[in-house]
Design a binder for these strands. Structure first.
Lengths: 108, 108
DNA sequence: AATATACATCGTAATATTGCGATGTATTAG
DNA sequence: CTAATACATCGCAATATTACGATGTATATT
């Protein structure tokens, strides 16, 4: 027990769940919002920005990257992280669709 | 340790994180999609639909409700659950905004 | 009143997440 | 070559999540 029964759900449901899960932590939301604010790709600045240890930030970045929410590119000694637009587009479409569908139905 | 440092982040970041976290499980995504499909509010049907025990479904519904993603209304002996449009509207707006902001910036 | 239906909650086992310090690896600076 | 900078990864402790069966509570049926 304790393990999510991934295989019982559709690929799409698992995909959305994985992306949502990656955003399911305030630090990771904060990282995304920071990346949006600074326009350009930044990396170790995030460690200065957030009240978390470097190793913790690194872990969060790993999760965001693995969910496709950010991209990272080696730039000399440091790594340039930035928003991965495609995945956010998926979220936008997904929720736009949900709202559209809900609009056409009455609720309890 | 092991606890999220909620207090270090903005209310908004915690709110988005909580909603995203609630969607961060394929079973809960499946529940939302099921509710979208059946148009009307349903309840114990979800137990028949998903390969999970009744107690597990009940827990998932509790999380979805606490995040504001669904509403539940007592209807005799059963409870009528349905999508809470407002929260999905928040998500739609949030991600629309992200996509808009990203569009105006170049990346690595 | 007794039973059935529809949930919610409790207890608990297995596993995952969060966070940190310490350590490892690669690039850059001197 | 050495030291510094910029990360990633490891190992651990604390806590949270997932899932289930068992049990509790409320309404509905007989």
């Amino acid at each position: 027990m304790g393990t999510t029964k991934t295989s019982h759900f559709t690929e799409d449901q698992n995909r959305i769940a994985k992306i949502a899960k990656a955003l399911g932590h305030p630090a990771r939301v904060a990282i995304i919002e920071y990346l949006l604010k600074v326009n350009t790709c930044i990396c170790s600045d995030i460690v200065d920005e957030l009240p978390l240890a470097q190793s913790t930030i690194s872990q969060h970045l790993k999760e965001l990257k693995s969910a496709g929410l950010i991209k990272g590119e080696i730039e000399g000694a440091s790594i340039c992280y930035c928003i991965d637009e495609k995945t956010f587009q998926i979220l936008k479409s997904y929720f736009s669709n949900v709202v559209l569908t809900v609009n056409n139905q009455k609720c309890c």
